[in-house]
């Protein structure tokens, strides 16, 4: 059985909604990103308590006509990428709200 994956927004980033996009700057390297619609959904749902599988099921599969298994694989790849850039924190356990400053992947 695949272990659940939890995600939380890093507190070391700067972010703002600009029109339909979300602009995110990572503290590490001051790299700037704009999130695409799927990344925006994951970003907004990243509360540290809801597993990725449930986010994909409730926010992506309900919105788009996609294969749930493929959607989850794509979402895992995307959150891994966002975590590498210090934008999201990911963990196999729920992530406390106070986490985030200075933390990389737990």
């Amino acid at each position: 059985m695949i272990k659940p994956l939890y995600l939380a927004r890093s507190r070391r980033i700067a972010a703002r909604k600009l029109g339909e996009e979300i602009l995110v700057m990572s503290a590490r390297g001051s790299t700037l990103f704009t999130l695409n619609p799927t990344a925006t959904i994951l970003w907004q749902a990243a509360d540290g308590a809801t597993p990725l599988e449930r986010i994909v099921e409730s926010k992506i599969c309900s919105e788009y006509e996609v294969n749930p298994e493929q959607a989850l694989l794509d979402a895992e790849s995307l959150v891994e990428d966002l975590a590498k850039h210090g934008i999201l924190l990911i963990s196999e356990k729920p992530i406390a709200e106070s986490s985030g400053y200075g933390e990389e992947r737990p």
């Binding site: 980033i13 700067a14 700057m25 001051s30 200075g102």
Partner: peptide, 8 residues
Amino acid sequence: LGELGVQS
């Protein structure tokens, strides 16, 4: 300042 993630 480092902890708080000041950009520059």
